[in-house]
């Protein structure tokens, strides 16, 4: 995981974070654009780091936890950049790039330098893992947006508006961005699960419905569908729905860590 392009990506993420944080503190048009450009540069460098790793292991980086974590970070950055362009909102960038930097730094510090070549599993499997990782990245983004929603909501209710209050998007915008992220996540997860099931059926002629990872994944689909439904419901819309979204991400983290590492044999990455 430690290579020059990873360090370059880390540097660009750090620089992007500095620019986003600076524009959050004091708005600056060109610095904001520079932050987006640096993030784009970081994502590009990160892509080449992943590619380099793929050449080394002869597969896409999904076969171990660290490769998967790195792919997750890359997809999180890319999804955020698209959302930023669609919703024309840079104020969340500081939080996303901070997470990106910390995540990639952790991965590059902990990951072993050399990986044994994984068994060949074919493109459908790669597609399955990439889509599922993308779904997790989109859910992470909705988690960040929901946290910001709750903070802004709290500030509005308390009437104690700080300097940063006016810099963040409106509650309605945060809510829409969060739901957009969840739609992306659910779409990616649905296709990811389907491609995984097809791959497994081709390989073994059966489906492992009882695998904890599969069960928890269906649970994730359930809680996020519930979030989307409740966020339109009279009693739940607004801050309560944002709280649900935050809690849902705990399930995602559980699936990504505890389930992957200890509960499943089928989806184990270590």
């Amino acid at each position: 995981m430690r290579n020059h392009t990873t360090y370059l990506a880390l540097g660009l993420y750090a620089a992007s974070f500095c620019c986003y944080a600076r524009t959050l503190y004091a708005p600056h048009l060109w610095l904001g654009r520079l932050a987006s450009l640096l993030l784009l540069g970081g994502i590009t460098a990160h892509y080449y780091a992943l590619l380099e790793r793929s050449y080394g292991t002869h597969t896409i980086p999904y076969d171990d936890l660290f490769g998967s974590m790195s792919l997750f970070a890359w997809l999180l950055g890319a999804t955020y950049l698209v959302l930023e362009a669609v919703h024309r909102q840079r104020s969340v960038g500081a939080f996303v790039t901070l997470l990106l930097f910390a995540w990639v730094a952790l991965v590059s510090a902990l990951a072993p330098a050399q990986m044994p070549p994984p068994p060949a599993r074919g493109p459908l499997f790669a597609f399955h893992v990439t889509l599922n990782t993308w779904a997790y990245a989109a859910f992470a983004l909705s988690f960040i947006l929901s946290i910001i929603y709750l903070l802004q909501h709290h500030v509005l209710r308390s009437h104690r508006l700080g300097r940063a209050f006016w810099r963040f998007p409106a509650l309605d915008v945060l809510d829409r961005m969060s739901r957009s992220s969840v739609y992306v996540g659910l779409g990616a997860l649905a296709f990811g699960v389907i491609s995984g099931l097809i791959w497994e059926h081709r390989l073994t002629g059966a489906y492992s419905w009882g695998d904890p990872k599969v069960i928890v994944t269906f649970g994730i689909v359930g809680v996020y569908v519930a979030y989307l439904w409740l966020s339109r419901n009279a009693i739940w819309r607004g801050a309560r729905a944002a709280r649900i979204c935050v809690l849902n991400f705990v399930v995602v983290l559980f699936s990504y860590t505890i389930v992957n590492l200890y509960l499943t044999t089928f989806h184990r990455f270590f």
């Binding site: 509005l156 006016w166 409106a170 509650l171 309605d172 915008v173």
Partner: peptide
């Protein structure tokens, strides 16, 4: 009015 914009966009 600005505060309303912070709620509704």
């Amino acid at each position: 009015v600005k505060l309303a914009e912070q709620v509704f966009g």
